[in-house]
Structures are given as C-alpha cells and as structure tokens.
Amino acid sequence: MHEMAICESLRDAMEDAAKAQNFSRVTRVRLAIGAFAGVEVEALRFGFDVVMRGSLAEGADLVVLEESGTAWCFDCNDTVPLARRLDPCPVCGGERLLPNSGTDMKIKDLEVM
C-alpha cells in the first residue's frame, strides 16, 4: 500500500514547512489528487490518520480535492476530458490516448496554528 509512503512524505513536507514558516500545528490539509494518480483515497485517509499520530498534524482534517484528467487523443488530434484512465476518447471513440493532466498529487494548502 503506497498510500502509507505518500502520507509519510506529506508529514515530512509539513514538518519542513513548519520549521521554515514557524508554525507548530496543522489543523487541515487540502490535497489535490488527479484522477489518474493511482491513489486509493480511502486507503490514503486511513494512512493519514495512522501516520500523523504524534506529529504536528495529529487530528488534522484531510480534505481531498479530486481533479479530473485529460488526455491527448492520437486519433482525433485533440485534448479530451476523461473520467477514467482507460476510457475511450469521448469525441471519436479512439483508444490511443496519452494522459496530459490528472496524474499528479499536490498539497493545495495547510491550515496551521
């Protein structure tokens, strides 16, 4: 379950930010997760609660902002929206698609004290 490793990286990033920006507690974390990022949101929520125990983000709310994805269709030569990575092109039905957004995950913001 790589979601635990993601949570550990989040904790490390928050600790670094706390040192740089002089805060001692995180009460809310907003994460933007792309539709094609390969992250299981419920596993991430579970991992977040476990990994944040004893840290500056213990008890913090995790808000997940799910972002849609887009892909370049080689058949119709256009960028198209996709709900799921393996869906066909909604314009032409083609299956030769290259994702160009929705593959990343980033911290949007933190609510701190």
Rank of each mutant, 00 (worst) to 15 (best):
E15R: 06
E15L: 13
D16T: 14
D16N: 14
A20W: 05
Q21S: 12
N22Q: 12
V26P: 12
V26C: 02
T27Q: 04
R28G: 07
R28M: 08
R28S: 08
L31Y: 13
L31W: 07
I33M: 06
I33P: 04
G34D: 06
F36K: 02
A37F: 04
A37Y: 00
A37Q: 01
A37V: 06
A37H: 01
G38R: 03
E42I: 14
E42L: 13
A43M: 12
L44Y: 10
R45K: 11
F46A: 14
F46Q: 10
F46I: 13
F48N: 03
F48V: 15
D49E: 15
V50D: 03
V50Q: 08
V51E: 01
V51L: 06
V51W: 04
V51R: 05
M52N: 02
G54Y: 13
G54N: 12
S55L: 04
S55A: 04
S55V: 08
A57C: 12
A57W: 15
A57K: 11
A57T: 14
E58D: 06
E58V: 11
A60D: 03
A60P: 15
A60K: 05
D61H: 13
L62Y: 10
V63W: 01
V64Y: 06
V64Q: 05
V64L: 02
L65N: 12
L65W: 08
E66S: 13
E66K: 14
E67L: 10
